[in-house]
C-alpha cells in the first residue's frame, strides 16, 4: 500500500515555481516563433512587392565599397577586352582617380593577366565575393574600408576553380551626399 500519509502537499512556492517555468517556456516559444516567422503559415496567395521601391544595397561606405569592388573584379573574358570593361560598368559609383580610369580605356593597355586569354577561349567567368576585412575608418568625407576579394572561376561545365584572394584597402569619398569609391590598393594576393 502506498504511504500517502507522509506525502508532502504542494506548497505555494512550489506552485509558483511550476507556473514560472510554464510561463517562461510559453513566452520564450512565442518569441521564437515571432522571431523566425514560423507562426504565420497561412498561404499568402497575393503576396507581392510591386509598388515598393526597393534599393537592396545600403548607402554606407562599407556597402558601397564591397558592392562596387565586387563589380570591378567580376570578369567575363569571353566578351570583355580587359578588366577595364568591368571597371567601366561601375562608373556611376566612382569618383576621383577611379572615375578618371573608368571613363576611358587606357592606352596603352596594361599587360593582360596571364590567364585572361585562356579564360576567354574557355568561356570562363570570374565572380568576385567581397567582404569587409577589419575596421572601417571615417575621417570627414573620406572612409577607408579594408576588404578581401575572393575570385572564383566559373566554367561553362558548371564546375568552378578557386582563384585569387586579395586583401585591399578601398578609399571612399562622400561626393555630394553619396559615397563613391575614389581609389583602392591591393595589399596582398594569395597567388
Amino acid at each position: 500500500m502506498f504511504d500517502t500519509h507522509h506525502r508532502r502537499r504542494p506548497t505555494t512556492a512550489t506552485v509558483l515555481a511550476a507556473l514560472a517555468v510554464v510561463l517562461i517556456v510559453a513566452v520564450g516559444t512565442a518569441v521564437a516563433l515571432w522571431v523566425t516567422g514560423d507562426s504565420d503559415d497561412t498561404p499568402a496567395a497575393g503576396g507581392t512587392d510591386a509598388g515598393f521601391t526597393i534599393d537592396a544595397v545600403g548607402t554606407d561606405p562599407i556597402d558601397v565599397a564591397t558592392v562596387v569592388m565586387a563589380g570591378v573584379f567580376t570578369w567575363q573574358p569571353a566578351v570583355q577586352d580587359s578588366t577595364w570593361d568591368a571597371l567601366h560598368t561601375q562608373a556611376s559609383h566612382l569618383t576621383g582617380p577611379m572615375a578618371t580610369a573608368a571613363a576611358q580605356a587606357p592606352s596603352p593597355a596594361p599587360k593582360p593577366i596571364s590567364d585572361w586569354a585562356a579564360w576567354a577561349r574557355s568561356g570562363d567567368t570570374l565572380t568576385a565575393v567581397v567582404r569587409p576585412d577589419g575596421d572601417t575608418t571615417i575621417d570627414g568625407d573620406t572612409a577607408t574600408v579594408p576588404i578581401t576579394i575572393a575570385q572564383t572561376v566559373q566554367h561553362q561545365s558548371g564546375q568552378a576553380t578557386p582563384y585569387t584572394t586579395y586583401t585591399a584597402t578601398v578609399t571612399v569619398n562622400d561626393a555630394k551626399g553619396q559615397w563613391k569609391v575614389r581609389d583602392y590598393r591591393i595589399t596582398s594576393s594569395s597567388l
Binding site: V72, A86, P97, P110, K111, R185, I186, T187, S188, S189
Partner: peptide, 29 residues
C-alpha cells in the same frame, strides 16, 4: 612596366587597373 610610365604619371602613383595592381603585388611578394 605593366601599364606604361604615362599611366603612373597620370594617376600620380600605381594606376587603379586590376592588371597593374595584381602585377605589382605579385612581383613584390
Amino acid at each position: 612596366y605593366n601599364a606604361g610610365p604615362g599611366a603612373v604619371q597620370q594617376f600620380g602613383g600605381i594606376p587603379p587597373y586590376a592588371e597593374t595592381q595584381n602585377y605589382v603585388t605579385t612581383i613584390t611578394a
